[in-house]
Design a protein around this nucleic acid. Structure first.
Lengths: 110, 110
DNA sequence: AAAATACTGAAGTGCCGACTTGACTGTTCT
DNA sequence: AGAACAGTCAAGTCGGCACTTCAGTATTTT
């Protein structure tokens, strides 16, 4: 494998930070440079670059440097990991609710 | 409205913590008491109770105390908030990719 | 070539939140 | 009633991480 598997742990931690979520929301509109992200958010380039590193590590973003400018964009991998995690919990959760429904139905039958 | 609206901010922050995600994973199997959660995780009751508070505040869990035991279970509201947030970003992201596809197709037509 | 731009890297600060302790309340068991 | 149990509350500790500064590199502009 070229890179370590992305864990739900990583992705949720990454999106646990409001600044990183803001970055993701901005990038959902289209690619941007580091400074293009930093300016509206009111942070230093360094701060944004550090956040970008985290987002890349967990498959939520990727970056490419051409010339002196690094262009950042979103990546779907991280999203998929989250969606899968959520779907799995929702599935077992709804099984519970179903069983509860069956139980209550039995109660009604007496 | 009886309670303040749940923000994506809250939910992602809540699941950003590994212990809280472990609690959610445990609760996905079925309801549990505070001590039932604390024991396998190796934390104090207080720690777990604090985490539960966070999970409840963001609509991921709810608790009910009967006698001396507080029973905790999952709730779907928090999950829905997350799913919606993700879906929205994915949507605009895929619009981007579509436009890129169109662009590349045009290139080919050239 | 000089200046401005875009970023990088190392190192430090400060604060928030995760977790603990200890004292307490209320409940169940014997 | 007394003891064990389940949880609560207030207060404190401590580490990690978000963010900064500053000095440096590479690129573009004039």
């Amino acid at each position: 494998m070229s890179r370590a598997a992305i864990t739900a742990d990583q992705v949720f931690h990454a999106l646990g930070d409001p600044t990183r979520r803001a970055i993701v929301e901005r990038l959902a509109q289209g690619p941007a440079s580091i400074s293009g992200l930093a300016q509206p958010l009111g942070f230093t380039l360094t701060a944004i670059a550090q956040h970008l590193q985290v987002l890349c590590d967990c498959g939520l973003a990727r970056t490419e440097k051409v010339g002196r400018v690094r262009t950042c964009s979103l990546q779907t991998a991280g999203f998929t990991v989250m969606e899968d995690w959520i779907a799995e919990r929702r599935a077992t959760l709804e099984q519970q609710l179903d069983r509860l429904g069956d139980f209550l139905a039995q109660e009604d039958d007496g």
